[in-house]
Simulated assay, not measured.
Amino acid sequence: MDSKKTYYINVADGQISQLQTASSWNFKIEATDDEIIKLRELFDNVHASDWKGFYRAHTPYIQYHYDRENDAVDNTNKQIYQMIYELGDDEARELIRTEGILSKLEQQE
């Protein structure tokens, strides 16, 4: 069984670090190597979808709510915050709960 390690997450940049002082961070989590690999894949998916969305934005006849790339980003962000909620410390869970982040993401679907 993998042991859990402490990681510091910056959602906006998609950064995952074990060093608390390496950069700014939003959430502190405890995760196994496999869980961090999954979280990294989710951040990579958001980045790839963002690029697709950038190119789509130059096609003005497609509206946002009919755009699969934006749907993919919304769905992946929900998965990221769900993982952070499950793996996060009390402060991370409280912030996600009080800000209503998961419910806001569900409303976008």
Rank of each mutant, 00 (worst) to 15 (best):
F27D: 07
S3Q: 10
E106W: 02
D2Q: 14
Y55E: 15
S49F: 00
T98S: 15
E94T: 14
N70K: 08
I9N: 05
S23I: 02
N45P: 03
D13V: 06
L87V: 02
N45A: 15
E35L: 03
T76M: 02
N75K: 14
S103Q: 14
V73I: 15
D89Y: 01
P60A: 03
Y64P: 08
N26Y: 04
E41V: 04
T76K: 01
I16E: 06
Q82F: 00
K5Q: 10
K5R: 12
G88E: 06
S103A: 10
D44Y: 01
E106K: 13
D13N: 10
I96W: 02
Y66F: 11
D90A: 15
L87K: 05
Q82E: 15
A57Q: 09
Q108T: 07
V46M: 02
I29Y: 03
A31D: 06
N77E: 12
S23T: 10
R93S: 13
Y8P: 04
N26P: 01
S3G: 08
V46Y: 00
A22Q: 11
D67H: 00
I101A: 08
F43T: 04
Y81I: 04
Q63S: 09
K28E: 15
H47R: 13
E106I: 04
V11S: 06
E106G: 01
S3A: 08
N75M: 09
A72Q: 08
L105T: 00
E94K: 15
L87P: 02
K38W: 03
Y7H: 13
S49R: 00
Q107L: 07
D2G: 11
F54S: 01
L39E: 03
W51S: 09
K52T: 06
E41T: 09
Q20S: 11
G14Q: 02
N26L: 01
G14F: 03
L87G: 03
Y61M: 11
I96S: 05
D74I: 14
L105S: 02
I96T: 03
K52W: 03
S17E: 08
I84L: 15
N45M: 12
D34G: 14
I37H: 10
S17K: 07
D89G: 01
L105W: 01
I80F: 00
Q20R: 12
P60M: 05
D89P: 03
T21Q: 12
Y81E: 05
R97G: 06
E35K: 03
Y61H: 14
K28Q: 15
S3H: 11
L42Q: 08
Y85L: 05
G100D: 06
Q108G: 05
Q79K: 14
Y81L: 07
D34K: 12
I80V: 07
D89M: 04
W51C: 10
D2I: 00
P60R: 07
Q107T: 04
Q18W: 05
E69R: 01
E41Q: 15
A92L: 04
N10Y: 08
Q15G: 07
K104D: 13
D13E: 14
N10S: 13
D74W: 05
Q108S: 10
D71S: 11
H58T: 07
I96A: 06
E30N: 12
N77V: 02
G53N: 10
K52Y: 07
K78V: 04
Q107G: 07
N70R: 12
D34E: 13
Y61D: 15
D71R: 13
Y85E: 11
D44S: 10
E69V: 02
E99M: 11
